[in-house]
């Protein structure tokens, strides 16, 4: 089973660690940074998809990866956009739009882990 994890920051690290407990899962990680937290910690050797995934390129990424489901592992703090005015509203709106995809998308809240 292929899982696309969007976000490899501090929150993504926790999500990847949890998913790795199931060896049957093939984890593909997307993040805009070259050495996000997951790479810096040596959890993954590199980011598989280096892109800032938004509604603009989500379908493209999904088509390329063909995951069985997608995990949104970005906290608000992982988004640089939250520094901008109403950035939080923007991020929340973006996550909401992404969950409408035909592929199952699981937005993980920090409370879950």
């Amino acid at each position: 089973m292929r899982v696309l994890v969007i976000g490899a920051g501090k929150f993504g690290v926790r999500v990847i660690k949890q998913l790795r407990k199931n060896p049957k899962l093939e984890i593909i990680v997307a993040d805009p940074h070259e050495t996000p937290e997951a790479v810096a910690q040596g959890l993954i050797p590199k980011v598989d998809i280096r892109a800032h995934v938004t509604t603009l390129n989500f379908d493209e990424v999904v088509q390329k990866v063909r995951p069985d489901f997608v995990v949104l592992a970005r906290t608000l703090q992982d988004w640089e956009k939250t520094d901008t005015p109403m950035g939080t509203q923007y991020v929340v709106g973006m996550e909401r739009e992404l969950t409408k995809s035909d592929v199952p998308v699981l937005p993980i809240s920090e409370d879950v882990l």
Binding site: T54, T55, L56, F58, M86, Q89, Y90, M94, E97
Partner: peptide
């Protein structure tokens, strides 16, 4: 607010543009 409007619409317009 103008900013709230834009924050709401950005994900929608990008989704359509994709």
């Amino acid at each position: 607010s103008n900013t709230a409007t834009v924050a709401l619409l950005i994900p929608v317009v990008l989704g359509l543009a994709s």
